[in-house]
């Protein structure tokens, strides 16, 4: 038996999961999936920023297109740190494709004119 807090939506249901991967406490099916993933292969979304070359003291926000393995968070952060982009930027532009073979892209989340 393990207790966890579902992080899929702001409701934050308290979940319990047993060794046979039976989940209780979830208010929706996404919570059950989350608890199973959390025990077998925990994943997280990352949001951060990349520096903008042609603007002084400016960064542009980015996110992973899907969640990545939790154990790779800091490796992916290192990759994000290495990238530089130029303004203008558009929401949805890709800063890194398939970062470290996770299957997730690093996507720009802010329009800078």
């Amino acid at each position: 038996m393990k207790e966890l807090t579902c992080i899929v939506c702001p409701r934050g249901c308290r979940l319990t999961i047993d060794d046979e991967l039976n989940v209780t406490g979830n208010s929706c099916p996404r919570g059950a999936q989350y608890a199973k993933d959390e025990l077998t292969n925990p994943k997280r979304m990352i949001t951060s920023f990349v520096r903008v070359k042609n603007r002084e003291n400016t960064v542009v926000s980015v996110k992973t297109s899907t969640s990545i393995p939790k154990g790779m968070i800091f490796d992916v952060m290192n990759e994000i740190d290495k990238v530089r982009v130029s303004a203008p930027t558009k929401i949805g532009d890709i800063a890194i494709k398939n970062v470290l073979n996770t299957g997730a892209d690093i996507i720009i989340t802010k329009n800078i004119k």
């Binding site: 579902c6 992080i7 939506c9 702001p10 409701r11 934050g12 308290r14 997280r44």
Partner: peptide, 10 residues
Amino acid sequence: LNRNIAQCLN
């Protein structure tokens, strides 16, 4: 939020 305690601290 509980969720932020889990994903930001824990």
